[in-house]
């Protein structure tokens, strides 16, 4: 195997065969931050199988709502210090995602949400472990209303050059329609996604 030879030969062929360069488009046209985003976010998240609570209040009140929503689910986990305090959580974040296999509900704060598609942007520092938002049975996300943006263009503007090792837009519960196009929630990941939009 001679990967370095292949590298040079691939780059050489690209240089030889590539067309004339053309300019990149100006994307400023797509930025328009005026829409009423909260309503749109709630509607779209509902359309894609998620649920949103738009509310005021403290983390403790959010936790009691979650416990109400999932009465039979006991194993709740979060790596967020505020949520941990409210949950009185002693369990320390382990190095491997396998340890979260039995987590019923994971609570994660998001940097921001995107109204046009109901997605939230979460990076690994907020997850604690990258596997957590995927391996849990139900996902709860907390986002500040002031951090909702209209479209993906504003989203990437907001991400800017912020540092992260891993990040994901998450829009609704894990789903599949591979069997005769019948939509089923909870393919491999969470069976539900609830977003608390904090006014």
């Amino acid at each position: 195997m001679s990967t370095s030879t292949s590298r040079d030969s691939i780059l050489g062929k690209v240089a030889l065969n590539k067309p004339e360069s053309t300019p990149l488009p100006d994307l400023s046209f797509f930025i328009n931050g005026t829409a009423a985003v909260t309503e749109q976010f709630i509607t779209i998240l509902g359309n894609i199988g998620g649920k949103a609570h738009h509310r005021e209040g403290t983390i403790d009140e959010v936790i009691s709502t979650i416990k109400n929503d999932f009465p039979e689910l006991k194993r709740i986990y979060s790596s967020d210090p505020d949520v941990r305090r409210a949950l009185d959580l002693q369990f320390v974040t382990p190095a491997s995602g396998h340890a979260f296999e039995d987590v019923d509900v994971a609570i994660i704060k998001a940097h921001f949400g995107v109204a046009e598609n109901g997605a939230v942007w979460i990076t690994d520092d907020l997850m604690g472990n990258r596997a957590l938002p995927f391996i849990c049975q139900h996902l709860v996300v907390i986002v500040d209303e002031k951090n909702l943006v209209p479209t993906m263009h504003e989203a990437y503007k907001k991400i800017g050059s912020s540092k992260y090792n891993y990040g994901a837009f998450i829009a609704g519960p894990s789903k599949t329609a591979d069997i005769e196009q019948s939509l089923v929630l909870g393919a491999h990941g969470p069976k539900s996604m609830t977003v608390f939009i904090m006014a």
Binding site: I44, G118, F134, T151, M152, Y156, Y166, A168, A171, G189
Partner: peptide, 23 residues
Amino acid sequence: LGVFLRLLTRSATGQPITTYSSH
């Protein structure tokens, strides 16, 4: 990515975005 993630899933299945867009 803002441009492509807006186009990809709307074109594919009519969803506004895939459930997971992992970076």
